[in-house]
Amino acid sequence: MNEILTREADPSDLTSIPTAELRLQLAQAIGVTARTLGHLAAIWRELEDRGEDLSDLRSGLMSYLPLIAEGRLDPEAVVRCAGQAMLLRAIAELPIGEQRRLLTEGVMVAQTNSATGQHESILRPLERLSSADVRRVFAVGYVRPPAEQLVLLVPPPAANRSRSVIVKVRLTQDEYQQLRQAAAQRGQTVPTRARDILLDATRADRS
């Protein structure tokens, strides 16, 4: 395995290796890289405990070491989703067990079939989610099931959009955090949850 990681690959050598073996080598290399990141994260945590300034190392994959060290981000997720900052930020809000389940099982994604126009759900590998998928699938600390994703996938009727009004409300940091948590618990976006709260309060006043 060390030979796989340390030697420079010769394309002429690879062409003679069966596909199944190449896939196995790739999977093994990903596993070793993830374990290496886990080890580096432990070193990072120890150096920080000793008061070392590591700000000059916060770039690329190294920028995720603090989250790995804190147990908030699975190192395999960093390897497999490298370069997808939005996705990794969303994953980091989930429990480690949930992160590993998604890495193993994939994610159910609601979408519109371009041929039929019908809504459907497909199972997609975590690392293959698009930016639009990430925004639709993940709430803060929560993975929306397909039924809730459809609410975000289907735009409101044009008549309702034309009569919509944007209302700006200033919140304290604590109030905003409470609103985020309430939205996450219901699988909603923060604006949607705020709108529901305002409408509920209006109905209560009328009654």
Rank of each mutant, 00 (worst) to 15 (best):
M1D: 14
N2D: 13
L5C: 09
D10Y: 05
D10I: 09
L14F: 04
T15V: 08
I17F: 04
P18S: 03
L22F: 13
L24P: 00
A27R: 06
A27W: 08
L37V: 01
W44A: 08
D49M: 07
L54G: 14
D56V: 07
S59H: 12
M62R: 09
M62N: 12
S63E: 14
L65C: 08
L67I: 06
L67N: 12
I68F: 02
A69G: 10
V79R: 00
A82N: 12
Q84M: 01
I91Q: 02
E98D: 14
R100K: 13
R101Y: 10
V107F: 06
M108H: 00
V109E: 01
A110F: 04
T112L: 05
S114P: 12
G117T: 15
G117A: 15
H119Q: 10
L123E: 08
E127W: 06
A132C: 02
V134F: 00
V137L: 01
E148V: 10
V151Q: 05
P156G: 04
A159W: 03
R163A: 08
S164D: 07
Y176P: 07
L179H: 14
L179W: 13
A182S: 15
A183N: 04
Q188R: 15
Q188I: 03
V190W: 06
V190P: 10
P191M: 08
R193L: 11
R195Q: 09
D196Q: 14
L199K: 09
A204C: 05
